[in-house]
Write a protein that binds this DNA or RNA. Structure first.
Lengths: 213, 213
DNA sequence: TTGACATAAAATGTATACATTTTAAATTAG
DNA sequence: CTAATTTAAAATGTATACATTTTATGTCAA
């Protein structure tokens, strides 16, 4: 029997993999039946996923699977650009070599395991970023970034197809660590800004093409 | 018998008025008994208030009422400064005179009803700000701002005592509308930045004093 | 045909009951 | 007395049952 935490993971993943179509309207009963759990569990998970942007309310009854759009991708990028460089700037002075080492280990993993499904690579990628911001000492900022990441993660299914992503992205990651290691915070923030923008350009381009098709 | 939406409002208000002490640990059963509702309802509300920052998880069982600190107030200010002027900049070109009129009506209300409890004045204040950002066309940005506002609202109990707030704040509000009316977006954003900073300085000052006492 | 109203079906909200987990207390070995 | 283990109490997680609300259907009058 599935429990709350498991359903949370599974449903999120199913949305990511588009087993539930974007924009589709779901009911508690539907999901409860499909996943063989009580509606209580569905309700809990539903509320959490709604607060994280995977689902949205739909009228007085029912929930809607979040859709995809180039406009939304651009907005998410804008917000990341507004907050992530700030987090990095604040965290950089407090970054330990131990943390930089951890970050590099994550990069190694990413480089090695090229066969991993997109959502797992995305998770590793975020762990890397998150680690760099961790020490900023601003819990609310980190909370907002986690929230933003959830939204971005929804697009990972697309990114798998959209982006040859890995190569340039990996390079930028390494530059980032190198600059942080030498204490060059300002340059690191610039690279980060570029990095976020670049990834977005590819995604938006892809979204615009496929929507037209 | 209380229903979900009512409990949500009431509990939030009770936290704001510090009927539940900051840092206090609560249980579902406690709240269910106190408000005479089923634990199911408490669970729903609990999860929502946790996602909004009024409560936080406490170990494996129990929830903790959020506390107050000067550091947190400063962080919230920092984030507002990062996002609200951006929202205003994006919204300003799309602002209609009708909306500006609505905004002015809200200011008139604020000016007239000086006797209102802090949380209601705070709500009007936010409605004013929210109205100015509304047209920015960035739903996620607005969502983040609403989230931030929830956090700030928790401090309204303090602000009542902390701030003679009304006078300078009202002046800045009017400047803001005037500048927007003439299409001077850049200056309006500057005033907004000042406005947010000013309110924060007073609050932080007060928090630092009372914590020492 | 259309639109309003009544009615039935379905979905959600809420309460109660039971299962599992967590916390705290009590007991006992060292 | 301390610390570890056991045991009881309390809190939470989950399922089922019932109440209320919402949505859809169908009927009838204009």
């Amino acid at each position: 029997m599935l429990k709350k935490q498991q359903l949370y993971q599974l449903l999120k993943q199913d949305i990511q993999l588009q087993h539930w179509a974007p924009e589709q309207v779901l009911t508690q009963q539907q999901l409860a039946a499909h996943y063989a759990v009580s509606r209580i569990v569905v309700r809990d998970v539903q509320q959490q996923l709604m607060s994280e942007g995977w689902l949205s309310a739909h009228g007085k009854a029912g929930m809607q699977v979040a859709g995809f759009s180039a406009a939304e991708a651009e907005e998410l990028c804008l917000l990341r650009l507004q907050l992530e460089p700030l987090a990095l700037k604040l965290a950089a002075p407090a970054l330990s070599f131990s943390q930089l080492g951890q970050a590099e280990d994550l990069l190694k993993q990413l480089a090695a395991q090229t066969a991993l499904p997109a959502y797992q690579r995305g998770e590793l990628n975020w762990q890397f970023h998150r680690l760099l911001y961790q020490s900023c000492g601003k819990p609310h900022l980190l909370r907002l970034l986690d929230l933003l990441h959830q939204q971005v993660a929804r697009y990972l299914g697309y990114q798998e197809q959209a982006l040859a992503y890995t190569d340039t992205s990996a390079l930028e990651h390494q530059q980032l660590v190198a600059l942080l290691r030498t204490g060059n915070t300002a340059a690191a923030c610039d690279v980060l800004t570029e990095h976020i923008s670049n990834a977005n350009v590819l995604l938006v381009q892809y979204l615009k093409n496929t929507k037209g098709a």
